[in-house]
């Protein structure tokens, strides 16, 4: 299958390992990802003020670029996924704002673009993945969802925002032990790392503590979000933190 793919800025630089692993995994699974033409910043975080249409322009322009070729867009970065989804939702719901946004644009967004997370493509290919995996003797996996894929309720990828189970199901179908922990969707502190480091330390401590309650010795933390990955890796040394595709790739290669 061929899909349009929106990488976002982070996957091209600090989260390069994430993009490399996505490309390799999709090659192995026969998913062809074609990078979107002229893509640029999705504007990093969703903010909406009634008097300011420019806050949504970046995301909407990317979607307009998409509609020229396809009506689906694949992304893997949690932040991009969240911003694109919420911006599109606001665009179609808020008529007044839409008129003002259109005044900035050469072209309108005519129809809703289906925004797909890369994980959803992997879910469809689970049987193929199962036959490819070489190594299964791993410590239990703790999947940290974070806030961007689970909220706002109703439109986010995972419908359950307290105890989502899709990643756990996915990996237990592949034959891995997964653990449930209390703070898997709790905020990691995000950009407060620049201004209030002690808050992010506190958030990460609590997340790690809730994992420690459930495992005896070692475990591996998996995530989809470059922002969470940075905070979790930077403020604790007990567990390793991987992107889920990075982890899958190492399983396929048998490393």
């Amino acid at each position: 299958m061929k899909y349009l793919y929106y990488p976002g800025c982070t996957l091209k630089t600090t989260a390069k390992v994430f993009e490399d692993s996505i490309k390799e995994v999709s090659k192995i699974l026969d998913i062809s990802l074609v990078e979107l033409n002229n893509w640029y910043c999705c504007q990093a975080i969703y903010t909406s003020l009634n008097d300011n249409p420019s806050l949504l322009l970046g995301a909407i322009r990317n979607l307009i670029e998409t509609q020229k070729e396809d009506d689906k867009l694949v992304t893997a970065c949690s932040a991009c996924y969240n911003v694109l989804l919420r911006s599109q939702n606001t665009y179609f719901k808020d008529e007044k704002l839409r008129v003002r946004i259109n005044a900035y644009l050469e072209e309108e967004l005519k129809r809703e673009i289906k925004i797909i997370h890369f994980f959803e493509l992997l879910e469809e290919k689970i049987d193929v993945l199962n036959s490819l995996i070489k190594k299964r003797d791993y410590p239990p996996l703790a999947f940290y969802y974070g806030c961007l894929l689970t909220r706002p309720k109703g439109i986010a990828l995972f419908s359950n925002d307290i105890n989502p189970q899709r990643f756990e199901n996915f990996f237990s179908q592949l034959g891995f032990l997964t653990i449930d922990f209390a703070f898997k969707t709790r905020c990691c502190g995000s950009y407060l790392t620049y201004t209030n480091e002690e808050i992010v330390k506190d958030c990460v401590d609590k997340i790690i503590l809730s994992i420690k309650e459930r495992v005896n010795n070692s475990c591996v933390i998996l995530t989809t979000c470059p922002l969470c990955q940075f905070n979790l890796e930077n403020y604790q040394k007990d567990y390793e933190v991987f992107y889920f595709t990075q982890f899958l790739l190492s399983l396929i290669k048998g490393e």
Binding site: C41, Q43, A44
Partner: peptide, 25 residues
């Protein structure tokens, strides 16, 4: 005042998010 080592290592999406929350449009 932001620590240099954090500024270098952090994903730029995080930094843009910070700027957007502190910027007046």
């Amino acid at each position: 005042k932001i620590k240099r080592e954090i500024l270098i290592k952090s994903p730029q999406q995080l930094f843009i998010a910070l700027q957007r929350k502190f910027a007046y449009y």
